[in-house]
Design a protein around this nucleic acid. Structure first.
Lengths: 109, 109
DNA sequence: TCCGTCGTTCGGTATTTTGGAACTATTGAA
DNA sequence: TTCAATAGTTCCAAAATACCGAACGACGGA
């Protein structure tokens, strides 16, 4: 199993972020990770929008989020611990991520 | 030729906006339309990033922007006049669009 | 009416996404 | 030390999406 790829902050792109967050499943995953106060396993998000996601699809979604620089993943025993890179992204891109998440949240209602 | 589709503001989605703007060509087109003080024809954007875009591709990009609710297109004689829906979107989604465009602009440097 | 221009649509190819099945890494228990 | 269970990844084929050349449609001007 090849090691997980995390881009350095300087390599994170707006294009990558927008692409990653143009999928509602990934938005929901990211929002869940941000809301939680401790790192979350992937399996926590198998059920999204009343639908069971196949494991391979879920794994792909995490890969996209990871390679866009939105989350950080560390092996902890048998599972992965996913945490947000919110702070780094805010430092580099200002209010971008906040605006996106707020807009999605506002849309829900 | 079927009529051009413009979603009503209420039908505009964050997902659609992010998808449309996750392509740098479309971002450049939108930025150009916003910057100009009068409506722009599609042909104005045939040259993007030192590259000649095929007409059919350009047309697709405009369609995506239009159906995401980001621009409005009106026939004016033989050409289309494209203008931004910035104001409507800000009304509905707050700083989202501004944050995206700013982030792209900041990334350029 | 004919021509030139601007843009759309069609259809084939290329790229991306999806998801089932097989696989890997790690833990805990026998 | 082996075995089974769990969490994720990888492989690969099928479905969906993007790309772009060529044909087409709509309009204005000569």
């Amino acid at each position: 199993m090849r090691p997980l790829i995390h881009p350095p902050v300087e390599a994170i792109t707006v294009e990558g972020i927008l692409h990653a967050l143009s999928d509602p499943v990934r938005v929901q995953i990211l929002a869940g990770i941000i809301k939680a106060e401790c790192p979350q396993s992937c399996a926590k998000f198998q059920m999204v929008k009343n639908r069971e996601l196949p494991k391979s699809t879920l794994s792909q979604h995490f890969k996209v989020l990871r390679e866009a620089g939105l989350i950080r993943c560390e092996r902890k025993g048998v599972e992965l611990h996913n945490s947000t890179r919110y702070a780094e992204i805010r430092e580099r891109f200002g209010p971008l991520l906040t605006a996106i998440l707020d807009a999605y949240a506002a849309e829900q209602r």
